[in-house]
């Protein structure tokens, strides 16, 4: 067993543990914190079904962003849905036999990487070109984009330029999942790709990537407009009634 294999095996266990526990902790905090007042951004749906639909449109179509700014919307949507297809395609490296629908989306997943990178570059360009966005950008905003672009480019390099030992990688991944370690191919592009992914997993729960779970807990989007018909009192506020 090479030290390289051991290092990456441990790195991925650590990254997965941090990602899962960090997100679980944050979700626990969000769900435990009360929302004492009804503050949906109106007009808002009056029923739970309506709220689910609103949240669905927000998560799938980025409805509010569409109302807001067509450039951010198009770049953001290209990136996120490119990423989604790319991630789904990657399921083939974690399943044996590969599920039918994953086989089906394989070609789309491959080329979605271009949409993903184009979206990221568009968003990054705005951080330089639009004075308002330049003003609010922190170093971490740029680094986050660099990280994602890095992951995308190294991945695309392996898909479209220099093929890596993908069979070896899949054996490594399948082995990781059942604690039966298999050798990891020592391809520098692959190692760069995996390192960047692990880094992304580690910083996910301590960064702005928390917008992913956060949206589901956003009271302006997940509350129904029914304040006249149901009495909504948080436990800490109920104590004030005596």
């Amino acid at each position: 067993m090479s030290s390289l294999t051991i290092f990456f095996a441990l790195l991925f266990y650590l990254a997965t543990a941090l990602l899962v526990s960090g997100l679980a902790y944050k979700i626990y905090i969000y769900s435990r914190t009360p929302a004492p007042l009804k503050i949906p951004t109106m007009p808002a749906p009056t029923t739970t079904t309506g709220v689910v639909m609103r949240m669905g449109r927000e998560v799938v179509l980025f409805e509010s962003l569409f109302k807001s700014n067509k450039w951010i919307w198009i770049f953001g949507w290209m990136f996120h849905f490119g990423l989604l297809l790319v991630l789904l395609r990657h399921l083939r490296y974690f399943t044996e036999p590969v599920w039918g629908w994953v086989v089906l989306i394989q070609p789309f997943g491959k080329y979605a990487a271009f949409a993903m990178i184009a979206g990221l570059l568009g968003l990054w360009a705005r951080r330089f070109l639009v004075d308002r966005v330049r003003y609010i950008s922190t170093p971490s905003d740029h680094l986050m984009l660099a990280l994602l672009v890095g992951i995308g480019l190294t991945g695309m390099a392996m898909s479209f330029v220099v093929h890596t030992n993908i069979v070896g990688l899949k054996e490594f991944m399948l082995g990781l999942m059942v604690f039966d370690w298999q050798p990891l191919p020592a391809d520098p592009i692959l190692l760069a790709h995996l390192s960047l992914v692990a880094l992304l997993m580690i910083i996910f729960p301590i960064s702005k990537l928390l917008h992913a779970p956060g949206i589901f807990f956003s009271p302006t989007r997940n509350q129904a407009d029914n304040s006249r018909d149901t009495r909504h009192v948080a436990s800490w506020a109920a104590r004030l009634e005596k």
Partner: peptide, 9 residues
């Protein structure tokens, strides 16, 4: 936590 500094606002 959730703001990504997208600039929409």
């Amino acid at each position: 936590d959730a703001c990504v500094h997208c600039g929409a606002c």
